[in-house]
Design a protein around this nucleic acid. Structure first.
Length: 561
RNA sequence: UGGGGCGUCGUCUAACGGUAGGACACCUGGUUUUGGUCCAGGCAGUCGGGGUUCGAGUCCCUGCGCCCCAGCCA
């Protein structure tokens, strides 16, 4: 009976132990520290869910902190979108919205402390010179000729740096550590660089900006963070994180690294995603094909599905690439329970019920959600002229095809059994209309004589149908790991978007709401796009499992039936 | 080959010296007014070699493989 105990991942265990030892007085405080240089993607969601859920689980707090130390890349638009996305995911930082830029003075003062302790110096080397003197993976670096300036000289120069007396790149403030250190990050790393750039929050107040390593640990320290969770590539930075905090003798949080999320057939890099946006390969950061949270939201993903997914994939240290099917499976599990069902025909084929009273209609009961009785029923109009899906009819169907064909009888969902009597074609031989008869005794879809039909298909009354555009999405890239390609643009899937302009929806869909996904029966989950104006636009969030497609594929590739 | 990490079914992830389990994917079958959902079953894994131990995915030794680091990015 212990099957439902969820194993604790390594970070939870570390915290468990810290709570036993009293390392942080049993206080738990995390933070999500995005740089506002792009929109958040599903990889960030893993970090968001981890940090907030850890805080939640242990009765602690989680801050939202913008790591805005590089004015060149950062923009206000991004700080807004990031807040929108974190809230949408369902998390609340309460009154703890922070910015690294709010600490610029404090960070500067700490740097002065470091200079006074002879642990930092102003270096006049250029970027190229610093690089050349850093050595490489096998050879030690050389010390800067400016390394042993006096405290006074360093103070004067650093003040001049701050005051704007120097040009970009002419000087840096560097930590005096060890140019022969096997960890490259410890070879006198840069603490401050000169950037005469306008900052989105501090304007032109500063022309020197702190580097990530200097800023991040101190931000954590200032905010009283206990466990600073970050991704694996920062493992090499932990010694410098620790060194700065120890050199200053300030409160010292613990950095812990975990493996970030990767998803197959997409990219998880803000830089590359921005390129897709800037070069118009997608319609924007919120293009429904993008792995961004805004894109997934527009596509119809729910925050619940994303949170469940993050909970299911676990936290570990090994590099991973999750299959997209896992995300979609979690999504469909959520959508199946919550979505109301509707009928919609994407590729219409006209059907005339020849024995149905001309000019008459009737309303038929349809269940809104078989997974949720409280969702109730609705009425769907039926008439003499209908649309069905083109691929629900085959003129010469294989044995395993259960749908409509000449002389075959199928059930129209929630309506009647119909039999196809005549196939009308255009001059090119395309099927453009079917003439069928219905059995009035099968109203609702059951036959009083116990007669069975193998297929049930969806339909829409042509007289009552609403026209709509439907956008179908496929994976954005053709290859499992596009980021590894020399040019990832070449790996874009040219068929990632299919627009269907002549779709027919049941009238109930007129009142569909943006942000509330719905199931189109037998087709998939869809949601109304914000682009909708006079004409409705629906995005396909994810298709339903399609067993027939599999059978069809087998028939085509292998033995024919 | 300097340093830091990581190797468990196809993909993720458990197992904390004691029967290698779960999820997704895939394959069977059942139920079904969605070829959906659901249910039942199946396939499939400890990187290699030594050692310690009654017993090793787990501990030790030794190979091998993969990822990260030489931004005045984060």
């Amino acid at each position: 009976m212990e099957e439902n105990i969820k194993p604790r991942h390594f970070i939870q265990r570390i915290i468990d132990e810290d709570n036993i030892s009293g390392k942080f007085e049993n206080r738990i405080h995390t933070r999500f520290p995005p740089e506002p240089n792009g929109y958040l993607h599903i990889g960030h969601a893993k970090a968001i869910c981890l940090n907030f859920s850890i805080a939640n689980e242990f009765g602690g707090k989680c801050n939202l902190r913008f790591d805005d130390t590089n004015p060149i890349a950062e923009e206000e638009e991004y700080v807004q979108s990031i807040q929108t996305d974190v809230k949408w995911l369902g998390y609340d930082w309460e009154d703890r919205l922070y910015f690294a830029s709010d600490y610029f003075q404090q960070l500067y003062d700490y740097a002065v402390d470091l200079i006074k302790n002879e642990k930092a110096y102003v270096c006049d080397l250029t970027a190229d010179e610093i690089r050349n003197m850093r050595g490489n993976l096998k050879e030690a670096g050389k010390e800067s000729p400016y390394r042993n300036r006096s405290i006074d000289e360093n103070m004067v120069l650093f003040t001049q740096m701050k005051n704007g007396d120097f040009s970009d790149g002419s000087h840096t403030l560097r930590a005096k550590i060890d140019m022969a250190h096997p960890n490259m990050n410890m070879r006198d790393p840069v603490i401050y660089r000169i950037l005469h750039a306008h900052h989105h929050r501090t304007g032109d107040d500063w022309c020197i900006y702190p580097m990530y390593d200097w800023a991040h640990g101190l931000e954590d320290s200032i905010e009283g963070v206990t466990h600073s969770l970050c991704s694996l590539e920062f493992e090499d930075h932990r010694p410098i994180y620790d060194w700065y905090l120890d050199a200053l003798g300030v409160y010292h949080p613990q950095q812990i690294e975990f493996a970030r999320l990767n998803l197959s057939y997409t990219i998880m890099s803000k830089r590359l995603l921005k390129l897709l946006v800037d070069e118009d390969h997608v319609s924007g950061w919120d293009d429904p094909r993008m792995p961004t949270l805004s894109g997934l939201r527009r596509r119809g993903y729910t925050p619940e599905a994303i949170r469940t997914f993050m909970d299911e994939i676990g936290i570990a240290k090994r590099n991973n690439v999750m299959e997209m099917t896992k995300l979609e499976s979690t999504l469909k599990g959520d959508l199946n329970k919550r979505c109301e069902r509707r009928m919609a025909v994407l590729n219409p084929l006209k059907v005339i019920i020849t024995n149905y009273r001309e000019g008459e209609d009737e309303l038929l009961d349809a269940i809104n959600n078989p997974e949720d009785e409280t969702a109730g029923k609705r009425q769907v109009p039926f008439g003499r002229e209908l649309y069905i899906e083109q691929n629900d009819f085959m003129e010469d169907p294989p044995r395993k095809f259960f749908r409509l064909g000449p002389g075959r009888e199928v059930r129209l969902r929630y309506a009647y059994f119909i039999t196809c009597n005549e196939v009308i074609k255009d001059d090119d031989g395309n099927v453009i209309e079917l003439k069928c008869t219905y059995d009035p005794k099968t109203k609702g879809g059951t036959s009083p004589d116990g007669r069975k039909v193998k297929g049930t298909i969806h339909w829409v009354s042509s007289k009552h149908a609403i026209g709509a555009e439907v956008r179908l999405y496929d994976r954005l890239f053709r290859v499992p790991n596009p980021a590894s390609k020399e040019n990832f643009i070449d790996a874009l899937n040219p068929d990632s978007l299919t627009v269907l302009k002549d779709c027919k929806l049941e009238p109930e869909l007129e009142s569909a709401k943006i942000g509330i996904p719905v199931q189109f029966e037998r087709l998939g989950y869809f949601c109304k796009d914000p682009d909708s104006k006079e004409t409705l636009i629906f995005n396909r969030t994810v298709p339903l499992r399609d067993s027939w497609a599999k059978i069809e594929k087998q028939l085509q590739s292998g033995q024919k039936n």
